[in-house]
């Protein structure tokens, strides 16, 4: 293709670039999953391999995006939106299972099961606040206010971590009170939904930390160059929104 004849939305040219990391990350993902099957020591081995390969990919990412060129806004934006589409189906399937078991149960939640509605309500507000700070961070970056961007970015990470801390605390106290994974269908679907959500929050936090690293160490983002920040922001809002449903449906039993 002649230069100047760019595809729509492709703001940069896209040279080919070899990379060993796709192969290694594929092995890393395999290692995690196989580790989960094989049991305890191997889980950590698998997770370690995955973490190492993931870091390798991220390290190269920085070079790929900084020295090479990006693929532009449009593909990145579509990429994250489509990915979220499949995430919606993940939570949709989990909710489907939840409602299925609820329809079959005589009492729901089972007698004697109390979820900490108020405390988790507070953590819910904290998570929603982190959505607001994320939005402000991105808006500040687009307005060129880097100081405010950095501040709100860190605040978002902090609030997200508090939420995860709250989840861990809640899990510990619930399990202590006897509500284990195998307690009932309610417990199983509760842990699947909140656990899947928690993993997504942790994933979002890791992405935010990557953003922070690239901001503070490499100063990669500007008012005109913020696709990655935008993608992470969209994702973070999605994770927040899912939690609203989880809280309303499971904790408040609104539906």
């Amino acid at each position: 293709m002649a230069s100047g004849d760019h595809p729509k939305g492709l703001e940069y040219e896209l040279p080919h670039h070899g990379s060993i990391w796709p192969l290694l990350v594929a092995l890393g993902i395999t290692a995690v999953l196989v580790g989960l099957i094989l049991g305890t020591p191997w889980v950590f081995v698998g997770a370690g391999i995955f973490a190492l390969t993931g870091l390798g990919w991220l390290h190269e990412d920085r070079r790929w995006w900084n020295e090479m060129v990006g693929t532009g806004h449009a593909p990145a934006r579509w990429g994250i939106l489509l990915f979220i589409g499949s995430e919606i189906m993940i939570f949709g399937a989990l909710f489907a299972a939840y409602f299925n078991y609820r329809a079959q149960a005589p009492v729901w939640p089972p007698a004697g099961v109390e979820l900490p509605v108020v405390i988790t309500g507070i953590f819910t507000i904290i998570l929603l606040l982190s959505g607001a700070t994320m939005h402000w961070a991105h808006a500040a970056l687009r307005a060129g206010n880097k100081r405010m961007f950095k501040g709100h970015l860190l605040l978002t990470i902090l609030l997200g971590s508090i939420f995860i801390g709250g989840q861990i605390y809640e899990y510990i106290s619930l399990i202590g009170a006897g509500l284990t994974l195998t307690h009932s269908h309610f417990a199983a679907t509760f842990y699947m939904l909140t656990g899947t959500h928690g993993i997504h929050v942790i994933g979002g936090l890791i992405a935010l930390i990557v953003v922070a690293y690239r901001t503070f160490v490499h100063d990669q983002f500007t008012a005109h160059r913020h696709v990655f920040v935008e993608g992470v922001a969209i994702y973070w809002h999605f994770v927040d929104l899912v939690w609203v449903f989880v809280y309303a449906i499971i904790y408040l039993q609104w539906f």
Binding site: M1, D5, P7, L10, E13, L14, H16, H17, S19, W21, P22, L23, V25, A26, L27, I29, T30, W57, W64, T71, P75, W78, G79
Partner: peptide
């Protein structure tokens, strides 16, 4: 599509390499 490559070339390779394991 007369596109230079797939939108995310490395992710493309990742998809391939997960088939093998």
């Amino acid at each position: 599509l007369k596109a230079p490559d797939m939108a995310f070339p490395r992710v493309n390779a990742l998809s391939l390499w997960m088939i093998m394991p």
